[in-house]
Amino acid sequence: MFKMFLFSLKNLFSKPATLPEGTEKPKQYRGLIKYYEETCIYCKKCEMVCPPGAIIFTYPEDGSKRLIFHYNPYLCIYCGECVRACPKPGTLVQVEDTAPPATAQDKPNDLWFEVEKEAVESKKIWQEARRKKRNK
């Protein structure tokens, strides 16, 4: 008990151990995912591999091959499987930033529920358009 008392007295006159706000420390943190559309071949492997389903592709109405990419940083578990599964290196890149905290005015949940419904409905319209193109 006496030793802890001396230790506390010594701490009174030395530098504090808290991290001040805004310090930069060296880290290799696994953060957000960035998508580059130029090299993507739309194989949808990243959508199949993701465990919680944070990547969803929606389909355009005219039946063309270029799908639209949606990513939800609030559902992602930051494991990095999509980066490893992509056959074209450089399409998906993991950076060191974190997602900003969301307040009630951004409404992140309602937007994502709509995206999920739209993916199912737009797929039917897209398949109809492709069938018409092939029959012509």
């Binding site: 992602c76 974190t98 307040t103």
Partner: peptide
């Protein structure tokens, strides 16, 4: 419904 929501799995204490 939450007033503030922080994302991560798990998020770092700074976030």
């Amino acid at each position: 419904p939450p007033d503030v929501f922080v994302a991560g799995c798990p998020p770092t204490p700074e976030a």
